[in-house]
Design a protein around this nucleic acid. Structure first.
Lengths: 209, 209
DNA sequence: TTTTAATGTAAACGGCCGTTTACTTTATGC
DNA sequence: GCATAAAGTAAACGGCCGTTTACATTAAAA
């Protein structure tokens, strides 16, 4: 009489992140917890419900994360005013924070891997992956850069390159850094400091002198 | 009496690329082909053998691809001479070719997705993913940049930034572009032309004047 | 200490898994 | 056209799937 929902969820998440939802059996999850599969159903009414609760928890955690960092994370508000105070520096800092978040925060790390494995399964998963990890963040940065260009905070070269390409140039090294982390977790510190250098370099290159 | 090994392999690959190897059943593969699962075993002795033959075919195709493009793709030869004639231009062109290869070549496209879904399953898959899609290409570019710096083909800023970071700056936009393609295949032409712009920009920025 | 609710177990359920078997259909070479 | 080998079928195999059931144990409340 010990296991709680949180524990089951995290155990399942780790397995989902390594084999994919469909390939993980209730037996595996229970076995990992040292209980029998029947006991799982005291806490969740199905395997799917475990998965759904993981998604839900990620959304909750994501909101908190968004509040902590000064740069709003996902939802783009049409009202342009909200970006007026976003500086290039804070955006670069945000990128570095994102690296730490997706590699060092245990839940975020496994969630990212899980959703990576589910991204091609159906439209819902595809959208989730896109919004959280690929097109979403790019579009978000793009919007910020567009604002920066409008308010003349970037140099002429930046203006010429365009907001979308600036977003790609900033966001791509983050994405690759996360991939490099997955390739060898031991390189974490090196990867992180390299990313720091690259964002600093980015700052210098595009900021209005 | 029509189905051949090639047909089975490609059908299986598409399913593996969307759900993952373990989640795809022999029934699904056979169903997609319009035959019964028993018939599969006339061509392959197990589901695993279908998977293995996909890997094998990818290696074969990869070798051909490496011969066609003037830039050697993977295996790094200690002998530094082999890089002497690799120019920054051809490396950038190689990056653009890689985008087309991993999005427009049917087999490469589905193989990439499949291996993406298998990357966390075990050490063998992890290595395969790393070598073909993440750390491998970065290391390869890094070696090329190191040679370029040594032979003084890049400018002072490039030298200061270092070969690894140059590799990241060149390779990251390719990786992200591929992800963006997966997010919405219809954007292909736009993504490709943006990547072209970014590599041109890269060329101008780091080449010795 | 006794009651009660939460948490566990083991077994059963129908169903699908990968694979093998015995047998039938189809295409090809002589 | 007929033998033969290739390619298909349907059914069976043992085994695991997700889930439910009936019952036992545990921990907390009274």
């Amino acid at each position: 009489m010990k296991t709680n929902k949180e524990e089951i969820m995290l155990t399942a998440l780790k397995l989902f992140a390594e084999r994919g939802f469909e390939a993980v059996s209730t037996n595996m999850i229970a076995g990992e917890l040292g209980i029998t599969k029947g006991a799982l159903y005291r806490h969740y009414k199905s395997k799917q419900e475990i998965f759904d609760s993981i998604i839900e928890k990620m959304f909750e955690q994501d909101e908190k994360q968004a509040e902590e960092t000064n740069v709003p994370v996902r939802e783009y508000e049409e009202d342009a005013e909200s970006y007026e105070h976003t500086s290039l520096e804070s955006l670069c800092e945000f990128v570095n924070n994102q690296y730490s978040y997706w590699t060092e925060n245990e839940f975020a790390l496994y969630f990212r891997r899980m959703i990576t494995l589910e991204q091609y399964r159906n439209e819902e998963m595809k959208k989730l992956y896109r919004d959280m990890l690929s097109l979403g963040p790019v579009k978000y940065s793009e919007d910020l850069f567009r604002e920066m260009i409008k308010s003349d905070r970037l140099n002429a070269k930046a203006e010429k390159l365009g907001a979308r390409n600036l977003a790609i140039l900033l966001y791509a090294p983050l994405q690759l850094s996360i991939q490099l982390y997955d390739a060898d977790e031991k390189d974490n510190e090196k990867i992180k400091s390299d990313l720091g250098k690259l964002t600093k370099e980015f700052e210098k290159r595009w900021k209005k002198k």
